[in-house]
Simulated scan of single mutants.
Amino acid sequence: MEPQNVNKGDRNKIYFLIIVIAALIGTNGYLFFKDRQQGERLVTVSTEKDKLRLEVEKIEVELDKVNALNLDLNEKLIEEQKLARKEIELLKRSLENNKITQADLEDARRKVAELQTFVNNYNKQISALQKENIFLKSAKDSLENSVRTANDRANNLANENYNLNAKVKTAAILKMQKADIVAYRTKSTGRKIEVSKSSAAEKLSIRFSIIPNELAEKGHHNIFIRVFDPAGNLLANENNRFEAEGQEMQYTHSIFIDYNNDNSTYTIDWTNPKPYIKGIYTVILYTDGATMGKAQLELK
Rank of each mutant, 00 (worst) to 15 (best):
N233Y: 10
N261W: 07
N7F: 03
D141H: 04
A103P: 01
L164Y: 13
K274F: 07
T186E: 15
S127W: 03
K178Q: 14
K51I: 11
I223W: 06
I181T: 04
G39Y: 09
T267Q: 15
A236P: 00
I257C: 04
A171G: 04
T27L: 13
Q130L: 12
T101C: 02
A113N: 07
K8H: 10
K92Y: 08
D35Y: 08
V168Y: 11
R153I: 06
D107V: 06
G289A: 05
F228M: 07
E48A: 14
E60L: 09
T27A: 10
F256N: 15
D258I: 04
V227K: 02
N156K: 08
K34Y: 14
A172D: 13
L285C: 08
V195W: 04
N133V: 05
Q250L: 13
Q296D: 15
N159T: 09
I126W: 02
E55N: 14
K300V: 06
A295F: 03
T44M: 15
N145M: 03
L54K: 08
K65Y: 11
N70C: 00
K8P: 02
A290D: 15
I181P: 06
K92Q: 14
A183G: 05
V168F: 12
A166M: 12
R207T: 15
S188N: 14
I225C: 05
R153T: 13
I25R: 00
L164R: 13
G9V: 10
G279S: 02
H220N: 13
S254H: 13
I18L: 01
G246C: 03
T265W: 04
N260Q: 15
L136I: 10
N240L: 01
H221Y: 04
V168K: 12
N133S: 09
K187C: 04
E106T: 08
L73N: 02
G279D: 10
N159A: 12
L157N: 09
V6Y: 13
A200M: 09
P273L: 01
Y259H: 09
A244H: 04
K8I: 14
E238N: 09
K58Y: 11
S138M: 11
